[in-house]
Design a protein around this nucleic acid. Structure first.
Lengths: 193, 193
DNA sequence: AGTAAATATTAATCTAGTTTAACATTATTT
DNA sequence: AAATAATGTTAAACTAGATTAATATTTACT
């Protein structure tokens, strides 16, 4: 029905007047990134909240041993930034990098603060979005503790089949908290059964 | 300065007029639970958001093998409920049980929805609270993957010294995702070094 | 089409953390 | 004060998953 995929998405949470939509659109920017480009780099302050129109990103953390740990993947209709860095405007713990050419809508930090003043309803929108994200994050912690890797992989596959198809397996292994070798073994076991 | 510890807490995020404070206070209930009492039970719909005035709770999940997994501990000035159940009003995945006699402020689901209408500023309050909780949750996932148990325990101890003193070690082990026996070994190693 | 780079598999060896089980200590109740 | 329940420790045997290293396979580039 709706023109803009972002307005479409928003309409699941709140209803904006045409005037509010205009204000909102005036304060956001659409931007294209190429595969492998960084949206956020560890150590930089994350200045934007990013809504993905198309494409795919990985959010990851490089530990003291130089190892990469995937925090999340993001695809169409989801968000992608270092929220901790964004809300506190302090250096990012995470990197966000494009796994595909990616088109996204960006909220600049200052613009978003202004938007909250102009359209208080947006507080509700983001409250609801973050609530959901938080709940998913808690459930992931529990899964990591209470299920063996094979089960976690099956759930990942069932929950995000699109991501599983688009993303290399060594990154999925990292997301699941296991090595690529062990994921390979698990997949073998699942097939040969 | 402030009379009520909950209003005190809120004032860190938003400023309410005296009138708004009155409305808010009229829609919340203070309640006392005894040690071991349940605030939420797995399978029930969580009807309240609970802010702890004093005391301590554990939020946990019983897995298919009957094993308990600690999701979080909550003490004074923090929240304690199954947020997933609360926001969707569907059966809870988690139990919330008091580890001490606990005094808390309860927001009933319907009351909170009304409050959001009457005091839209509260959307901002809860947006900010959940943002912080989400960020902490993401960081916990990363720590669980990138650090060995001994480091996780040290960080837990440094971050929540109060909780570490008040809560039995087998529950802390569960929170860290390890067995009580292994935590005992770790503590021994830390002392004897 | 041919080569290099990126991704995936396999298998042997190793280790962080589990399991089991027995015992020690600390609280709580009567 | 004794008895019981709850919590904590120790140690041996075990396992899920890591590490290392060699080899395949797929993808992208010239």
């Amino acid at each position: 029905m709706n023109k803009n995929p972002f307005l479409e998405y928003i309409s699941k949470f709140i209803t904006l007047t045409p005037k509010e939509e205009t204000i909102l659109l005036s304060k956001i920017v659409q931007r294209n990134y190429l595969k492998d480009q960084y949206i956020v780099q560890q150590g930089d302050v994350c200045k934007t909240a990013n809504f993905i129109i198309s494409g795919c990103t990985k959010t990851y953390y490089i530990d003291l041993e130089g190892q990469e740990h995937i925090v999340m993947f993001s695809i169409e209709d989801w968000w992608s930034s270092d929220l901790g860095s964004f809300i506190t405007q302090t250096p990012a713990d995470f990197n966000v990098q494009c796994l595909e050419n990616t088109k996204l809508i960006q909220f600049n930090y200052e613009n978003l603060e202004e938007l909250y003043k102009e359209i208080p309803k947006l507080e509700r929108l983001f409250r609801k979005i973050v609530e959901r994200a938080y709940v998913a994050s808690q459930k992931r912690i529990i899964r990591n503790f209470s299920l063996p890797a094979k089960e976690r992989y099956k759930i990942f596959n069932a929950t995000y089949p699109k991501i599983n198809q688009r993303v290399p397996q060594y990154l999925i292994a990292s997301y699941l908290g296991i090595t690529k070798e062990f994921l390979s073994k698990i997949k073998n076991q699942l097939v040969s059964k």
